[in-house]
Amino acid sequence: MAILNILTYPDVRLKNIAAPVTEFDDRLRIIIADLEETMRAGHGSVGIAAPQVGIFEQIVIIDVSAKPKIKQHGRLVLINPEITKWEGFKVGREGCMSVPDYTGNVIRAHSIQLVAQDEYGEQHEYEMDDYEARVVQHEVDHLDGMLFIDRLVSRRHDLFKRKVYK
């Protein structure tokens, strides 16, 4: 296993489109292991996409299990992920290992349905909400050469759903 070097904006390679994975072999599983180690070596990162380390294939790992009390699937390897349904929207603050020292507000679907393969090529369907759905949308963007800074909304005049007093 190895911690891989993270490409950081404005590296133009982050705009590359990732190719679908076709071989579910040991090479893929080594990439996954390295990606996971790299993600966990980051500062509280809850997801990683292969293009962030210069591997332009549709490989994503997410894990929001560190966040307590939310509906989530734990650690997931998502190969060739495809979001098939979007519902609702929510503004949330995002940061990215590929965009150091900057965070911004992004509108994402609140709930999504997702089809993805695992590291053995088996297909799964998922329904995800809130944080987990946000992470997947952020990571799938990486596969399409998009960063969250391509989707920013104003930090100022945005709509947050807040706890209301009185």
């Binding site: 809850v46 940061g95 290992m97 946000r134 952020h138 807040r162």
Partner: peptide, 10 residues
């Protein structure tokens, strides 16, 4: 209104 800002780093 007060809302914690949760930043998701990915």
């Amino acid at each position: 209104q007060l809302e914690p800002i949760e930043i998701l780093v990915m």
